[in-house]
Design a protein around this nucleic acid. Structure first.
Length: 100
DNA sequence: GGCATGACGCAGT
DNA sequence: CACTGCGCCATGC
């Protein structure tokens, strides 16, 4: 699997996340199962950072429900309008997590 | 090949 | 809770 193909895999999965739900970087990596280990989450994070512009990137957060650095406001507003359960300024992962 | 870097995750404090 | 430190390993120099 080439890096480019992996990018496509990640993006296509993110596009399938329904409004009102989210997935963590680790969950995305785990669902694809193309890479393993804790670092897989970082890989997904890097991919979203560089190629997430065309997909609902705000539906992908950290495992603790925190939003991507530099886009907290943007993400929070979008998630709110989609009805994603929030706890203060972070996503309530126990209720918002989506499993493919 | 070595070295720095990173939209992470998790245990410890 | 929040914050910190460390492991992880693909990628680009």
């Amino acid at each position: 699997m080439t890096p480019q193909e992996y990018v496509e895999e990640v993006l296509s999965l993110v596009e399938r996340i329904p409004a009102g739900k989210v997935m963590s970087y680790g969950a995305v990596a785990d669902a694809l199962a193309d890479r393993t280990g804790r670092n897989s989450a970082r890989q997904v994070g890097n991919i979203m950072s560089r190629h997430g512009g065309g997909v609902p990137w705000h539906r992908v957060v950290t495992s603790s429900g925190r939003m991507p650095p530099g886009h907290e406001q943007e993400a929070r507003q979008r998630l709110l309008s989609e009805g994603v359960p929030l706890k203060g300024d972070h996503v309530d992962m126990s209720r918002a997590l989506w499993r493919p």
